[in-house]
Amino acid sequence: MALHVLHYRHHGRAQWGVVANGAITPVPGEFKTTAEFIEANPVERLAVLSDPMLSESEVQWLSPVTANQQFICQGANYRQHMIESGMDPDVKKFNMIFTKATSCIVPADSPVVKPNEVQFLDYEIELGLVLKRDVTSRQTVTDGNLHDYIAGAVIVNDYSARDIQIPQMQFYKGKSYRTFGPVGPYLCLFERHDMPNLKDLDLTLTVNGTVRQSDSTANLVYGPAETLTELSGVHDLRTGDLLATGTPAGCALTIPSPEKQRAAAQLPEAEKWRLFLKMQEERPQYLRAGDVVEAHIVSRDGSIDLGVQRNVVVDEAE
């Protein structure tokens, strides 16, 4: 059975614990990083812990992915999101990979700070996968051996400054402002028989109670096994690293139709981006101070429930 782990602070001390029905059973030991925790605590060891000692309401959430780990992301990995991003899913035959700065990682209940220079702040709910082992050579990862590579899953919200990311062509900067990467609240650790549930998780994101994004991981274009196989050929991965697997349709971002893009290509660069920004100004979906964003990922049978992220958008202090 999947186990839900919380990284938390209690009486000034960072700890890890197994969570069930709002009660925490602390895990003995000191683990400063996600890698240290995973390497020292196989699911079988955690499953025999007993005697809950704390209520979740007594503790402060921390991110279950620590800032020393890598933060790797997939882009446009749901068919409908490809379409709304101006891509033809029948033509795009490559896996889009980028990274976020780990300095953007914050606990799941943190405020999201909208920088003063950012006008178009967007949301992106994503299933995050946490690595179980180091990968330092090309591997063939399959659904059959995926459990050897994936320790568990978390909720990620890939907040994005669209006016930085797209006109400036800076994915890294536009997606890496501090607080733009809330993770958690829980790290759900899997046993081998839990792995098929990765293909049956429902993702839901709301803004001020209104559903903006809703989809299933059954609709991922590039799944975890083929993505890890591809990444292993070009990039070293470490225990505890985070792979965010892409977001469903429903973002605030709107992209011109292919016809309009072809027409815009004939315009001077400044005019092209002026028209793009004007199009975004007409989208009320972009986040503003005071907006409340909630993200939830759960399996249909209820055996996996990654909890709820709740972020309030705040303006950057002058």
Rank of each mutant, 00 (worst) to 15 (best):
G246I: 01
F120Q: 03
D109T: 13
Q213G: 09
T254D: 03
P28A: 02
C251D: 00
Q170E: 10
A20M: 00
L62V: 02
E56T: 08
M87W: 12
G184P: 00
F180T: 01
E30K: 13
E124Q: 15
G307E: 07
R45M: 07
A265K: 13
G17S: 02
G240K: 11
G152C: 09
I125M: 01
S63K: 04
T206N: 06
V118C: 04
K260I: 00
P256W: 02
P185Q: 08
G307V: 02
Q80E: 15
A153V: 14
T239I: 14
E124C: 13
V65Y: 11
K114W: 01
V313R: 05
N157A: 15
L253R: 08
A265L: 09
L131R: 04
R178F: 00
V106T: 11
L231F: 10
S50V: 07
T247M: 11
Q285C: 10
K92M: 14
Q309F: 04
T217P: 05
T102I: 03
F180W: 03
T102N: 12
Q80S: 14
V292E: 13
P64V: 02
M169C: 07
L243Y: 08
D305E: 03
S257V: 01
Q80Y: 04
L228P: 12
R283E: 06
N145G: 10
L205R: 00
F171R: 09
F120N: 05
N21T: 00
Q280L: 10
R45G: 11
Y8S: 07
L253S: 07
L129W: 07
R133P: 04
V18M: 06
R13V: 01
Y123M: 09
V130H: 14
P167Y: 05
C104T: 12
G233Q: 12
N311S: 14
Y123A: 04
F31I: 00
S63F: 03
M195P: 01
R238S: 14
T66L: 14
K199S: 14
D90A: 09
T142F: 02
N311H: 05
G290A: 08
N68G: 13
I304Y: 02
G209C: 15
E44V: 03
R138F: 14
V234E: 05
R138I: 06
E117F: 12
T227E: 09
E318V: 04
V308A: 08
K260G: 00
P28F: 03
A76N: 04
P107W: 03
Q119S: 05
S303F: 03
I304W: 02
D109Q: 10
T247K: 12
P185D: 10
R300T: 01
F190C: 15
S137T: 09
G75I: 04
V5S: 00
M87D: 09
I297L: 13
V211S: 12
E126K: 03
T206H: 03
S299M: 08
F190S: 11
G223Q: 09
Q165E: 11
P268F: 03
G152D: 12
V106Q: 09
H7S: 03
R300Q: 05
Q170A: 09
W61F: 14
